[in-house]
Simulated assay, not measured.
Amino acid sequence: MIWAAAILLVFVSRGDSEDYCYDEPQCDPYSWGDSFPLCHPLLELRHSPIDLDRRHMSRDPSLGPLHLEGFDQTQTGHWTLENDGHSVVLQVGSGMAVSGGGLPDTYHTVQLHFHWGGPATNGSEHTVDGRRYPMEMHIVNMKSIHPNMSAALDDPTGLAVLGFLVDVVYADNVHFGHISQKLSSVAHKGQRTKVKPFPLLGLLPTRNMSQYYRYHGSLTTPPCSQAVVWTVYQVPVYISWSQLAQFTSQIFSTEEDAEQVTPLHNNFRHVHPASGRAVTASGDAGVLLGTAAPPLGGATALLRLLPTATLGAITFRL
């Protein structure tokens, strides 16, 4: 059942490759509403992504760390890494689930995928205080009570997506290498390869998992169903410049035998207004009080805004 859900999720949440794109005026994110009504920004009010403006957040002390069942284990069988023309998608099969942290139910983990920019542009979907990060990773989870993805997409809380901003340093992220070392095998649209399962927890900022932001929104790809409980973590995942470059220079949105091979760049949807939605910070997450200072870049901004207790963890990860 979970494998079927994973396959269906990729189809439903990412759509047909001929129906949408990121770089052509007739099918880019501003045109998605022509083919997918829920993507039209004037028809609905719960679009994603948004800017996470920490000057206008309320803190919810009841929001503690989520329970990530099976994330610290090596699952059986094999996983599949695929280039679907819009992103690189890792289908993870069964064995993992997400609950707690204010989520209304238990959610089964079905896949993760990435959004990035180009050789000289950042490409996260969510922004923080107006800043866009180089990349963003989404771990997609489906509410366990639903028999299929169609039912989940009709539920305003049918999906729980964990969003991780990705920043860059000089040293490789060994855990991220499980994915980046396989990218050459999925360079072109339609290509896929097997991946030996590994503990997903290694990809995450494990010492800072109690620091996140929560709001209700939508899929960021067609059909843009407004069925997502978003959890976007404050502390980024760190990868190396060379690992990021593998996405921006070696992944293509076209098939291998296409007349014109097109690099997959800037595969992110534009930021939408919060439209009065409540955006809350977990009990340990950082918020800004008063007038915000001019934005800083890289690790400097992160260190300035985080509680002192987290500084040792960041130094450890760098």
Rank of each mutant, 00 (worst) to 15 (best):
S48N: 09
V10C: 12
T80F: 05
I179F: 03
F252C: 06
H78K: 09
G217S: 08
A4F: 14
Y238Q: 06
A274Y: 06
L45F: 13
Y20H: 12
F114K: 01
T157N: 09
Y20W: 15
P294N: 14
F247W: 10
D172Y: 08
Y215G: 06
Q191W: 03
E125P: 05
T291Q: 10
S150G: 06
L264I: 01
Q191I: 03
L90D: 08
L305R: 04
C21A: 12
D23R: 12
D72F: 01
D51H: 09
G64D: 03
M96C: 03
S240L: 07
Y20C: 13
A309D: 11
D16P: 05
G298W: 12
N83A: 08
D53A: 09
D154P: 00
R277L: 13
D105N: 04
D172V: 02
C39V: 06
G163D: 11
H270M: 14
P205C: 09
V92T: 08
I251M: 03
Q91G: 02
G217A: 13
G202I: 01
G130Q: 01
L264D: 03
V186W: 02
G70E: 12
P199G: 09
F176M: 14
Y233K: 01
A299C: 06
G33K: 11
V110T: 10
T315L: 10
C224V: 12
A313C: 10
R269S: 14
G286N: 06
A4H: 12
Q73V: 13
G286Y: 14
A281M: 07
H178N: 15
M96L: 04
H175Y: 05
N173E: 11
D60N: 14
G297F: 11
A301P: 00
M96D: 05
P307D: 07
N208I: 01
V229R: 04
G85Y: 01
F247H: 03
L90W: 03
R131G: 02
D60L: 04
V88H: 00
P205Y: 03
T231P: 03
L165K: 13
N266G: 02
V174W: 12
F268H: 04
T206D: 04
K189G: 02
E44W: 15
D167F: 14
I239D: 06
T121D: 13
Q73E: 14
R131Q: 08
E125M: 06
P263C: 06
G297R: 14
G85R: 00
D60A: 10
Q246S: 13
L306W: 06
E256W: 09
G276V: 09
A245M: 11
M137I: 05
L204D: 00
L153V: 12
G190V: 05
T193L: 07
W79M: 08
P25N: 15
A5T: 02
E24K: 10
I179R: 03
D23M: 07
